[in-house]
Design a protein around this nucleic acid. Structure first.
Length: 278
DNA sequence: AGACGTACCTGACCGC
DNA sequence: TGCGGTCAGGTACGTC
């Protein structure tokens, strides 16, 4: 499911609704997801106040009083949604429920059908996150920085951009979109991209991510914002999911070219325009 | 070390 | 209607 823009949207929604509230109870409705829920999650979280809710890569960090941090990862199909306590009855795949003090406080529900998500609680928030690469929306993400990161990478540019230890937060959709705007083929060897092309790629990644955040993310199958509404960036895809169609501002003869191509790289679909992306 | 395949899960959709 | 195959926004781990 969610890549950086979706996680950012969810994180902002949760921060607005939950910052300052005190966790009154945590209900486990499953043993765990990708890994077991911490056995002491309840005792460590209950009674704590939410200081802040932020994002790092595709992780949501809920920082609590007492120097505890709850970490969420949504995997492919995870959702964090707010529901009114009085109207809450459990749905299928609701795995965790957080309740908060105060009569009108909502409940926070972690729902995840495919169970690839994760919830952990840590003292040192860096433990799970220390191997993550650069944040693509940070000031440190520059053309020289990206050139340095990719200079020895023999793998495809597509695989390199999906590697969370190089750049943290991109997923299949936004990599396809950014490569289209940078006019680079997903098949290109990463170390063979020129500094000029990488400068363009940095701009494209920033632009795509910022536009997607503005649109509230992309809703395909599972993704909803924490208030249950959907994002709209899926209506602005240039290539993702557009096999056989014209790409944006296309002047090619689609009957002749076959339009946008779909190939498989590392077991995942890549969509690209063979004419524009070299 | 780096690159690649595969496993983890459920659900939606398509063709027969 | 149902069944099997395929695909899906991600990450971790084994193997070469």
């Amino acid at each position: 499911m969610p890549e950086l823009p979706e996680v950012e949207t969810i994180s902002r929604g949760l921060a607005k609704a939950l910052t300052g509230l005190r966790i009154s109870s945590v209900e486990k409705r499953a043993k765990g997801l990708r890994k077991p829920f911490p056995p002491d999650l309840k005792t460590r979280a209950e009674g704590r106040k939410i200081i802040s809710i932020t994002r790092r890569a595709k992780y949501i960090l809920m920082s609590l009083s007492g120097n505890e941090t709850i970490i969420f990862h949504l995997g492919m199909s995870g959702k964090l949604v707010l529901r009114q306590k009085r109207e809450y009855s459990p749905n299928k795949h609701d795995h965790l429920v957080f309740n908060f003090s105060g009569k009108n406080s909502p409940a926070l529900i972690f729902n995840d059908p495919r169970r690839f998500g994760l919830c952990d609680i840590v003292h040192d928030e860096n433990s799970l996150l220390k191997s993550l690469g650069i944040e693509p929306l940070s000031p440190e993400f520059t053309a020289p920085a990206l050139t340095e990161l990719l200079k020895n990478k023999k793998t495809s540019i597509k695989s390199a951009l999906l590697d969370q230890s190089i750049i943290a937060g991109l997923g299949n959709i936004y990599v396809c979109e950014a490569l289209f705007y940078a006019r680079i083929s997903p098949k290109r060897e990463a170390r063979k991209c020129s500094p000029k092309e990488l400068a363009c790629l940095v701009k494209s990644i920033r632009k795509v991510l910022q536009s997607a955040i503005k649109a509230g993310g992309s809703s395909l199958r599972d993704y909803v914002r924490s208030d249950g509404t959907t994002g709209s960036f899926q209506n602005h895809f240039a290539v993702y999911g557009c096999e056989g169609k014209k790409c944006k501002t296309c002047t090619c003869n689609v009957i002749k070219t076959g339009g946008i191509k779909r190939i498989t790289q590392g077991g995942r679909s890549s969509f690209y325009c063979e004419t524009k992306q070299k």
